[in-house]
Design a binder for these strands. Structure first.
Lengths: 245, 245
DNA sequence: CGGTTGATTGACCGTTATCAAGCATCGTGG
DNA sequence: CCACGATGCTTGATAACGGTCAATCAACCG
């Protein structure tokens, strides 16, 4: 299997330079790819978990349910992201994985991690870093949900999305595609679809953004950063402590 | 330095059996211990980070600030917990660490992780597991903040605390010490101190709990579990995939 | 063309925040 | 040993933010 077809190598080599052994180890892991339609559950909470995924195409998200239909989306997954790392430590899935649009995933077995940890300290450090960086994202979201108004939360979401998309696409301007329904945005930010709709309209009227054609354009990014006290956590990964190999 | 004085060995050997080499590696890491008074900041957000801590005594917590005085507590740290693992991946602290009561911490240098990852796949797996389990805790908190009422949130907090305390003290009954102010509870759950006070009173009147003397007693734990749809995530750690050494 | 999904809008309501005052507790210093 | 200030908890009045419910509309797709 060539590098071209290995999502995992592409993903990880974005962060660190990988030696030929590591590349070979990773390329061996992936088998096939699978396609999922919009709004499909890939796995469900409490399922037994035997595999992880790398997102090749499309947006997905992880969520948890409450009785009487309440739902909390806890993670948005973009192309290049690793899904399911969290559940490696558990016997069962801690969240349900669903798709926001047509999605292509590259699965690989949980047992592959064993191999990585045993044979590559450098990749082990990288996996740990990825898990820890995800923690920072959770903390940002917690801060938004606990202490921000609806408008601030939506502003935070958009700033975070655009910061994240700029990692893989540095040429991106102030406009990005948003393949989420307002109900999904609400479930992510702890609001309701109705109030998301109303707040988006207000923000548009205030000149913070423009919408249309499934896209969002941030007109006053600096003002939004000020409003939400936003810090971009995606650009200060410290790899200096990584083992050499 | 004997095992008795190594917080880290005690902490980690609770999860996996450690070989003598691993024990020696860990014991070497710790230097001294430090004491902090109640309501002291140990380190602050954006500080450069060079060390981690193990909690030897007392409760601490990590928080982030917002402009105009809003604060979100994101993690509660109990004796035995490792603090600061998250920031290993970053150049700077992502949260501020503060104490809820007099606290004793055992610091050890960040550079020690390098050694662990290079030399012990088994400890690497354990560190990764700890980071991933913390993710599950963040998800539980997100669910509470996004989709629960004030009463449910407080119920969730107490259930989570008692489940966590039972790990290290299986003989614990329905009563636990709670060295947090109501303002701190509010900052953790995304509420205000005033409303925490009112909600606690209501819950007491409904017979869910009793308070007094800095302690809480849960009278109808089953009812609270039902109310909050609580799942104890502290007892299904999967270590089967760990490397042998 | 009809059915489904998602966005919008308006009326109304409830949970929780805000503000302010009062009270208990506790540690400290005179 | 008492007085004082600081801290934390309680309580009440008021207000706002966001939820709920329901109707309408647009877009899409089979």
């Amino acid at each position: 299997m060539t590098d071209r077809s290995s999502c995992l190598v592409m993903k990880l080599s974005r962060y660190v330079t990988l030696g030929p052994e590591d590349r070979a180890r990773l390329a061996k892991i992936e088998k096939t790819e699978r396609n999922y339609a919009t709004h499909t559950d890939v796995y469900r909470l409490a399922d037994r978990n035997t595999e992880l995924f790398v997102v090749k195409e499309g947006w997905a998200f992880s969520y948890v349910d409450m009785p009487n239909g309440r739902r909390q989306i806890v993670q948005l997954h973009h192309p290049g992201d690793i899904i399911g790392l969290r559940d490696v430590a558990l016997n069962c899935r801690s969240t349900t994985l669903s798709t926001a649009e047509p999605v292509t995933l590259c699965p690989f077995p949980k047992s592959a991690l064993d191999l990585i940890l045993r044979e590559s300290p450098r990749l082990s450090a990288l996996l740990l870093s990825i898990a820890l960086r995800e923690q920072v994202t959770f903390i940002d979201l917690l801060r938004a949900m606990g202490r921000m108004s609806a408008e601030e939360r939506i502003g935070y979401l958009f700033l975070d999305l655009i910061a994240r998309l700029r990692i893989t696409n540095p040429s991106m301007t102030d406009t990005f595609r948003l393949p989420l329904t307002q109900s999904q945005i609400a479930d992510y930010l702890g609001l309701t679809n109705v109030y998301v709709s109303k707040t988006l309209l207000q923000m548009e009227q205030k000149g913070y953004l423009q919408r249309g054609d499934g896209k969002v354009r941030l007109l006053r990014e600096e003002a939004l950063i000020e409003l939400t006290d936003f810090t971009n956590h995606y650009d200060d990964l410290d790899t200096s402590w990584f083992p050499d190999k």
